[in-house]
């Protein structure tokens, strides 16, 4: 494998809760090659989303190291991580997480504005066109369907041309038809932009569209899936 875009070595994650300390991930080690796609599958509570959040610097590992584009995420401060995500990562959530007081166009333009792009709105408009929502640019999230909201979220994640695209069950809140359309868009746009994709999903059929698949169980990588990934 060439230099991996994402590299996790013996990563542990433990969280303190009301019931005490809970071990979420136990010594995860895996690499993701540049331009490849990786599907993370496993039952609920297996640690898929937590692993994705660690890759995006949205969560901090309590042990081991997470490296993205050659940079150790654990060594960065909160603002450093925010800038790193702004410049190199796009994130798509199951619940869309669009900002309700912003129009579709403004939602897509937000990461570009944060990066200081003067043509933020032109690029955002083009990205909305690419997901087939150019005509809904001035609409607020509450005025759009779930499928449309997820397409806006996808446009927002891809607008800054990130090297890494992280998607956490992007079809989880959509019906089959809309889910299929979103996945077609996701893979199509990813292929066009050449981003490395990490996709969390419950659906084996979606995971099968990825170059590699890792199955998690109880916070550990399943051996069979590891072979598939490597």
């Amino acid at each position: 494998m060439t230099d991996p875009v994402l590299s996790l070595k013996d990563v542990h994650l433990a969280l303190d809760g009301n019931a005490g300390r809970v071990e979420i991930l136990h010594g995860i080690t895996l690499d993701v090659a540049k331009g490849s796609s990786l599907g993370l599958i496993g039952p609920s509570g297996s640690g898929k989303s937590s692993l994705l959040m660690l890759m995006g610097g949205l969560e901090r590992a309590t042990g081991g190291s997470v490296t993205a584009l050659g940079q150790e995420l654990g060594a960065m401060g909160e603002d450093g991580l925010a800038r790193f995500r702004r410049d190199h990562m796009g994130v798509v959530f199951q619940s869309f997480h669009l900002i309700p007081t912003m129009t579709a166009l403004e939602n897509v333009a937000t990461p570009l504005e944060l990066a200081g792009h003067r043509d933020a709105f032109d690029r955002a408009a083009a990205e909305l066109e690419a997901v087939g929502l150019g005509h809904r640019a001035d609409h607020y999230p509450a005025q759009m369907s779930g499928g449309e909201q997820q397409r806006v979220a996808l446009a927002r994640a891809l607008a800054p041309r990130p090297a890494i695209l992280l998607a956490d069950e992007p079809t989880g809140n959509l019906d089959e038809a809309n889910g299929g359309a979103i996945m077609d868009l996701l893979f199509g746009l990813r292929d066009r932009h050449g981003a490395t994709l990490v996709l969390v999903t419950h659906a084996p059929s979606l995971a099968a569209r990825c170059d590699n698949v890792v199955r998690l169980r109880d916070g550990r990588v399943d051996d069979v899936a590891r072979e598939a990934a490597e």
Binding site: G56, L58, E78, D79, A82, R83, R85, R86, D87, V91, H97, L98, I99, P100, T101, T110, P111, L114, A115, R156
Partner: peptide
């Protein structure tokens, strides 16, 4: 909270 967390995800610093 959700909006702030979303902005942080998109790259907003604490100052912004």
């Amino acid at each position: 909270t959700s909006v702030i967390a979303t902005l942080r995800t998109l790259g907003a610093t604490r100052r912004v």
